[in-house]
Amino acid sequence: MDIIIPRALVATTPATFLNDIISLEEVYTKDEIVNVLKSTRERISNKVCILVAERYQIPAFARFAI
């Protein structure tokens, strides 16, 4: 889970995000996805974090400070 979730989303784009997140949701819960993304050391973009937050209607979070 800690490896698969970030790697599945590291290369996602707004155009492919829906398909990518649906694939993850078939295996993992919303809470698992969010918690892994918040704690991973993988280079997940802030844009992906915002897309995840919007999908789950949670406060936006970022991996990197701007």
Results as ranks from 00 to 15, higher is better:
residue 48 V to N: 06
residue 12 T to I: 02
residue 48 V to R: 06
residue 30 K to M: 13
residue 5 I to C: 03
residue 55 R to G: 01
residue 19 N to G: 15
residue 31 D to E: 15
residue 28 Y to G: 12
residue 27 V to I: 15
residue 58 I to L: 03
residue 3 I to D: 06
residue 62 A to L: 09
residue 61 F to M: 04
residue 23 S to F: 12
residue 58 I to E: 05
residue 23 S to Q: 14
residue 17 F to I: 01
residue 2 D to C: 07
residue 58 I to W: 04
residue 56 Y to W: 02
residue 43 R to N: 14
residue 36 V to N: 04
residue 7 R to T: 12
residue 25 E to Y: 05
residue 21 I to D: 08
residue 36 V to G: 12
residue 44 I to N: 09
residue 1 M to N: 09
residue 19 N to K: 02
residue 58 I to A: 01
residue 3 I to S: 10
residue 7 R to Y: 12
residue 30 K to G: 06
residue 63 R to A: 14
residue 52 V to I: 07
residue 58 I to N: 05
residue 58 I to T: 03
residue 58 I to V: 00
residue 12 T to A: 07
residue 34 V to E: 04
residue 56 Y to P: 06
residue 16 T to R: 05
residue 22 I to T: 14
residue 48 V to K: 05
residue 38 K to D: 06
residue 52 V to R: 04
residue 4 I to G: 01
residue 25 E to C: 07
residue 52 V to C: 01
residue 61 F to D: 07
residue 65 A to R: 10
residue 41 R to I: 09
residue 39 S to R: 07
residue 33 I to F: 06
residue 11 A to F: 10
residue 29 T to G: 10
residue 51 L to V: 01
residue 61 F to T: 04
residue 44 I to P: 10
residue 27 V to E: 14
residue 28 Y to W: 14
residue 54 E to V: 08
residue 51 L to F: 04
residue 40 T to L: 01
residue 57 Q to Y: 02
residue 51 L to P: 00
residue 24 L to H: 00
residue 66 I to E: 14
residue 43 R to L: 10
residue 62 A to W: 04
residue 11 A to L: 10
residue 54 E to H: 13
residue 27 V to G: 00
residue 34 V to F: 06
residue 62 A to V: 12
residue 24 L to E: 01
residue 66 I to Y: 13
residue 1 M to I: 07
residue 49 C to K: 02
residue 58 I to Q: 04
residue 16 T to G: 08
residue 3 I to R: 11
residue 7 R to N: 15
residue 42 E to A: 13
residue 27 V to M: 11
residue 21 I to S: 10
residue 9 L to G: 06
residue 44 I to T: 05
residue 63 R to Y: 06
residue 57 Q to T: 02
residue 16 T to P: 02
residue 15 A to D: 10
residue 34 V to R: 01
residue 3 I to T: 12
residue 20 D to Q: 08
residue 59 P to K: 10
residue 31 D to K: 12
residue 33 I to H: 01
residue 57 Q to W: 00
residue 54 E to K: 15
residue 11 A to D: 11
residue 57 Q to V: 00
residue 60 A to V: 15
residue 43 R to E: 13
residue 15 A to W: 03
residue 34 V to D: 08
residue 36 V to A: 14
residue 55 R to M: 02
residue 8 A to E: 13
residue 34 V to H: 05
residue 48 V to S: 05
residue 15 A to V: 09
residue 9 L to H: 11
residue 28 Y to V: 07
residue 10 V to R: 12
residue 44 I to V: 11
residue 42 E to P: 00
residue 38 K to M: 14
residue 51 L to T: 00
residue 1 M to Q: 10
residue 41 R to A: 11
